[in-house]
């Protein structure tokens, strides 16, 4: 059994190379046309600001591959952020705070996972509901105020450098390497792919699907807890809008990186390219002098383009998309007819 899972190691798909290529192209274009783009200071600023998004996107990629999704990510980050702020005000030691933050995040992820596995609520509905609950919780905890003047104990973690390299770049590289290894070479990682690709077949193979789901949602929670530390280090303000579109942005990042929203397909390497693509896009458009009002339109069109390329690449490389879609439809019809019979 062990050999079966680990002997199949997929090469990075075309889609990943495409994402990396587009990132390189984007950096190339901005370097030529945008003043002040290729400076240490600007690159560090972008890397600092993308850190929490990148970490959350990592978890989101795993969930999407598994056929799951987490709409509550931003609100969960807000709840953990509020806790971190309170502990910072009480001058608790930063290491204890970091531990509490990650533990709290894991617990939140576990709650999502339990709702999905034990109560059999579809992932998107379960996390949409917890999203509302967490947002209401932040609202209640803040009591209509902002938390400002939070001690900057995590500023060095989030915005400092090590041998001239931004800490966040090191954090991103370490996290992405570890999770790439886990997803590609461990039994757990292969099971995540298997569950997302075909749940029934995974069940037939004897995979405990609920355990995989619980584990992945808990990992997502832990990553959110860590991302909240980075967020508090750089923003240091807790207000009602905290993390309000983090979930959507992290899904966009994963999709740009070639992860399929229908599960079973995706890559961590694609996601890091996607995260950097999004971050440099936002930054580069400002530096190019793109009017603020035109920006969301440009971003939206680019994302559509990416997804379009995704479909085309699939069609060209395998020619399978038609038969896959057709097959799925036949499957539904087949099941329906069984129902009637």
């Amino acid at each position: 059994m062990g050999r079966k899972f680990s002997s199949y190691i997929p090469a990075p798909g075309k889609r990943v190379y495409l994402a990396i290529g587009l990132l390189a192209f984007e950096i190339f274009i901005f370097t030529i046309f945008a003043e002040n783009f290729l400076t240490i200071k600007n690159l560090s600023t972008v890397l600092i600001n993308v850190s929490d998004l990148a970490i959350v996107s990592l978890g989101m990629t795993m969930l999407l591959i598994m056929g799951g999704i987490d709409i509550s990510a931003g609100s969960a980050l807000g709840v953990v952020g509020f806790m971190i702020a309170q502990l910072l005000f009480k001058e608790v030691h930063p290491i204890i705070i970091a531990f509490v933050a990650i533990a709290a995040g894991t617990l939140i992820g576990l709650i999502n996972g339990l709702l999905i596995t034990k109560f059999r609520i579809p992932d998107i509905i379960a996390t949409l509901s917890t999203n509302s609950v967490f947002r209401a919780l932040i609202f209640g905890l803040l009591g209509g105020k902002y938390l400002v003047g939070i001690p900057l104990k995590f500023k060095r973690l989030a915005t400092g450098t090590l041998f001239g390299i931004p800490n966040t770049l090191i954090i991103i590289i370490v996290f992405f390497t570890v999770f790439w290894l886990v997803l590609t070479f461990t039994r757990y990682g292969r099971k995540v792919y298997a569950v997302g690709d075909n749940t029934e077949a995974a069940k037939a193979l004897g995979i405990n699907i609920n355990n995989i789901r619980l584990a992945t949602y808990s990992i997502m929670g832990a990553l959110i807890g860590f991302a909240a530390l980075l967020y508090m280090g750089r923003v240091a303000v807790v207000e009602i809008g905290i993390g309000s579109d983090l979930a959507i942005r992290s899904i966009a990042v994963a999709v740009i990186g070639g992860t399929s929203v229908t599960g079973g397909r995706g890559s961590i390497i694609g996601t890091i390219a996607g995260a950097l693509f999004m971050a440099f896009l936002k930054n580069g458009l400002v530096l190019l002098g793109m009017p603020s009002l035109a920006e969301p339109a440009v971003t939206g069109v680019l994302i559509l383009l990416f997804v379009g390329i995704d479909v085309l690449a699939d069609l060209k490389s395998t020619g399978k998309i038609k038969s896959r879609l057709l097959g799925r439809r036949l499957n539904i019809v087949d099941n329906k007819s069984k129902d009637i019979l």
């Binding site: 056929g67 749940t199 929203v261 229908t262 339109a297």
Partner: peptide, 27 residues
């Protein structure tokens, strides 16, 4: 009976469409 995984995937697709449209609607 429609299999659970199909229902889930359909939900996923709807979710993805919602997300894409909200990105576009943002402007």
């Amino acid at each position: 009976m429609i299999s659970k995984s199909n229902t889930k995937k359909i939900l996923m697709i709807i979710g993805a469409l919602l997300i894409l449209s909200s990105v576009l609607l943002a402007c």
